[in-house]
Design a protein around this nucleic acid. Structure first.
Length: 423
RNA sequence: GGAGAGAUGGCAGAGUGGUCGAAUGCGCGUGCUUGGAAAGCACGUGUAGCCGCAAGGCUACCGGGGGUUCGAAUCCCUCUCUCUCCGCCA
């Protein structure tokens, strides 16, 4: 959510910033609601003020006195009017809130212009993704793949996109998660194991609601949402709290399974491990002082990159253009790993600065030393990392002539073998 | 799942229809005192919205929502959460 004062005082700047995201918002409509709301508010407050004054006067009068009775009669009318106007005020308030929730975050000045994914800027390229890999295959074509990653039985038991990981398949997933968590701990992120269901208030605070309602699995009858990413419970950890300024920045990481309905996806995107309804991911999250948030974003991105470097996987970093930025992000980098068998880049991490957009929805603040007043923190998050696509790249890039997959040296202590043998 | 008790400011804890944004204590801040500190003393100490150039003013908030009333922290309904006992259970 944006600061209402921002759209009220500098609507043209807001309009221009939203245009950079290639989104359309009825800003004039929002401003009109705002004007009506403020008028109604002043009306109601004047009536309440009248009631309060009468209240004080009546307290001093003898209960049954003629003056008292006259006052009751007089105030009945005021009370009725106040009630009536309050209904109008509440309606406008809700309308305004909904309108504000529908306004996207504004992009940072350093975000490049652009409309589509083709307009994203290649910010960095790491590793020799073009090196010849004569044995590379799309991972789902590797002999024995379906034994370790059993999609057929997953579909039977649950549905498409919910595979079983069996034997070496389960162990390589566990090894990757363990590796990620250990590396992140070394980088200063405190590990958290959060709830994997959240309530509507939490999903609203991070921006999943009302914007992406259909993307989450929802439970009945309790109306909880299966987390699409650990970002949601993690960010909400400090919801409605004021943290110590000296505690900032706060670094946390969490492993959770992630659940996404992925309605509308199709084709090559959903083959094999490319896109699942349930997948494992470690998320990095920071609550930071606004003055440091862009430096902290760069650091978080570097932390995520280091994981790919240690796994010796070629990757690139995209700086997302305005049109490809999400609803809530002010700036975003995507990390994409090279998948030698598919000959394409797979997104394995998305590192974003939300500035105060989530913090305002979630009311996460710190008490500023200077002002003495609560101020909104900035939130930053990114994957570190998402398992299935890293695994896909690892399988494809490291496939050898004999059909085995070489395990990266850093992962061997976690996996316990030097090769994945498909046995 | 059943029965009962409870939810008040940073914390503890009063307050059962009117002058209560809320006693008191603790904590915190500033000042006095001191060689310095402690103690003591004095004053101050919530969040948010609206109006205003400002000084300032007004309004809301006693777990959430709704109701009764001229008037609600206080009465009624409802939801959520916490605690105690019972049941069940990894």
């Amino acid at each position: 959510m944006l600061d209402p004062k921002l759209i009220r005082e500098t609507p043209e700047a807001v309009r221009a910033a939203i245009a950079k995201k290639h989104l359309t918002v009825d800003l004039d409509g929002v401003l009109a609601i705002d004007v009506a709301w403020r008028a109604a508010l002043q009306e109601v407050e004047a009536l309440r003020s009248k009631q309060k004054a009468a209240n004080t006067a009546m307290a001093a009068l003898p209960k049954g006195s003629p003056e008292f009775i006259a006052k009751v009669g007089e105030m009945k009318a005021v009370s009725a009017q106040a009630k009536e106007r309050e209904v109008v005020l509440k309606e406008l308030e809700e309308k305004f809130r909904q309108a504000m929730l529908s306004i996207p975050n504004l992009p940072h000045a350093s975000v490049p212009e652009g409309r589509t994914p083709e307009d994203n800027v290649i910010f960095a390229l790491h590793g020799a993704h073009e090196a010849p890999r004569p044995h590379a295959l799309p991972h789902w074509e590797i002999a024995g793949f379906e034994k370790l990653f059993d999609f057929a039985r997953g579909a039977k038991v649950t549905g498409a996109g919910f595979p079983f990981y069996v034997g070496e398949g389960a162990r390589i997933v566990r090894a990757l998660l363990h590796f990620f968590l250990e590396e992140n701990a070394k980088a200063g992120y405190v590990e958290v194991a959060p709830p994997i269901f959240v309530n509507a208030a939490s999903a609203t605070a991070t921006g999943q609601l009302p914007d992406k309602e259909g993307q989450m699995y929802e439970t009945t009858p309790d109306q909880l949402y299966a987390v699409p990413t650990a970002e949601v419970p993690l960010t909400n950890f400090f919801r409605d709290e004021i943290v110590e300024e000296s505690a900032l920045p706060i670094y946390r990481c969490a492993y959770t399974p992630c659940f996404r309905r992925e309605a509308g996806s199709y084709g090559k995107d959903v083959r094999g491990l490319n896109r699942l309804h349930q997948f494992d991911k470690v998320e990095l999250l920071k609550w930071v002082h606004p003055a440091t948030s862009y430096a902290e974003l760069d650091k978080l991105r570097a932390d995520a990159e280091r994981l790919l470097q240690k796994l010796d996987l070629p990757y690139r970093v995209l700086l997302m253009c305005g049109g490809d930025l999400g609803f809530a992000q002010a700036k975003k980098y995507d990390l994409e790993v090279w998948s030698a068998g598919q000959k394409r880049w797979l997104e394995v991490s998305s590192c974003s600065n939300f500035e105060s957009f989530q913090a305002r929805r979630a009311q996460i603040r710190f008490r500023g030393k200077e002002s003495g007043k609560p101020e909104l923190v900035h939130t930053i998050n990114g994957s570190g990392l998402a398992v299935p696509r890293v695994l896909a790249a690892l399988l494809e890039n490291n496939l050898e002539a004999d059909g085995r997959v070489k395990i990266p040296a850093v992962l061997v202590p976690y996996f316990g073998q030097e090769y994945l043998t498909f046995q």
